[in-house]
């Protein structure tokens, strides 16, 4: 069971409930692959810094989950087949990353870079 982070950019024409439906779809897919969802964080509509497929805005969604390694291959096929998804990225989280995400979620960041510099 490794921890992964999936970031997905949906087409901006997606309505609110479609967006929720597709989130649900992938969360169920992971649960079905005996994975566990850690945190789902929809950013919503954001402007892209360069146009993707002639669109300048996209709906971002970040999904952190634990899953066995085989589930990732299947997840990728699902994402590639889904035409609502403009672009996706699955990153594997090491322990520092997991701890970073955990601290960021509850309790914010103690060390601020520019504190004393």
């Amino acid at each position: 069971m490794n921890s992964y982070e999936l970031m997905v950019i949906f087409t901006p024409v997606l309505s609110e409930e479609d967006f929720k439906a597709s989130q649900k779809k992938y969360e169920d897919f992971i649960a079905e692959q005996s994975g566990a969802t850690v945190h789902s964080n929809p950013w919503g509509l954001k402007s892209l810094s360069y146009p993707i497929q002639k669109k300048t805005t996209g709906i971002y969604w970040i999904f952190e989950f634990n899953a066995p390694a085989e589930a990732i291959e299947k997840l990728k096929i699902q994402l590639l087949r889904d035409e609502q998804v403009l672009r996706h990225m699955i990153t594997r989280l090491d322990k520092n990353a997991v701890e970073y995400n955990y601290r960021k979620r509850n309790g914010g960041f103690a060390v601020t870079e520019k504190a004393e510099a």
């Binding site: 970031m7 970040i62 990153t91 520092n96 701890e99 970073y100 995400n101 060390v111 870079e113 504190a115």
Partner: peptide, 10 residues
């Protein structure tokens, strides 16, 4: 110096 371990791409 600030003990940052992980550079978040987000």
């Amino acid at each position: 110096k600030y003990g940052i371990k992980y550079v978040d791409y987000k």
